[in-house]
Amino acid sequence: MDTLSMKAMLADYGAETLKGIHNYIPDKEPRAYLYNLLAEYPNRGGKGFRPGLCIAACKAFGGKQDDASNSAVCLELLHNAFLIHDDVEDESFFRRNKPTLHQSTNTAIAINVGDAMQVLGLYPLFKNREVLGDKVAMQIFMEVQHMVTESVEGQAMELGWRKDNTANLMEADYLRMILKKTCWYTCIHPIRIGAIIGTKGRVNPEKFDRLGYFMGTSFQIQDDVLNLIADEEKYGKEIGGDILEGKRTLMLIHLMATCKPEELRTISKFLSLPIRQRKNADALEILELMHTYGSITHAKNTAQYLAGAALKEFYTIFSRLPDSEDKSLIENIIIYMIDREY
């Protein structure tokens, strides 16, 4: 399977999931500042990793796509809710080549739409009972409960670092934050949920933890690298925006641990300013320092090592399953994470 086929499969699963999302949106007022926005936001697209991993894992383990569709809808709704709230918290300007929702409406409306998306995500979990039975449906409910808990804890860690202007972070701190904020909900739980559905609850979901963790961390580090060096149009977000936002990336942590004391003071001073008072020129200077001290290369290497570890986990777990397009899809998502340009 090549990258194009992988993207086509993800697009198919994404389109089906999007259709499912629209089925769950109430056709009633208030439309202008709630349901219309709620319906439009997921149309912005995205890579579709979460529903893709969930459906592919389900099918690779012998399940049917329809069995996983409610869970995929829930995952995608929660993901979109996280994005809307994340953009408010980060004061971001662009998301998927469009102004962020709070920029195009206002902060209050965006938060409310995000809240509505979270609540809407509960109903497909309830409907799972009809398709999967009480036991598996409840198991998936608890998977989602854990997923959301971990994600908000990870977000709290990162927001706390920014608020306190924490400057003494170690790589293990970063790995922990990414595990909690990103990995559980981007990779670990989508795969776990898919496998639970595919096996009708007969798989030990913990066996996918390392695979999803290595995949998710590799993906996030790569995403952070691309934020600094990618083509802005392809990437869909402002380049270098993470530095302006003061995001504690692996590159920033590496830089702060290796640069000279006077440079560290300059960086700390920059990070202590409110976001809107930070200057682009200063952010570019920090980017230059990241190049000088090899922070970006270090992050790229780390992402590569973790992707390799993810591949090894994948082969260990999935090699006993019959070959299928869905099994190849998961393998190719891992490979894509290493090779992608945006």
């Binding site: 963790y213 290595f214 090592y305 992707a307 390799g308």
Partner: peptide
């Protein structure tokens, strides 16, 4: 083949120890 290349790259002795360090640290956190 691409997957093999990646895994082979990691097996290169020069970077094996750094890779091992990163992965061990990650696993401990998990």
């Amino acid at each position: 083949k691409l997957a093999d290349d990646i895994l082979k790259g990691i097996k290169n002795e020069e970077i094996l120890s750094s890779a091992q360090k990163v992965i061990n640290s990650a696993v401990n956190v998990l």
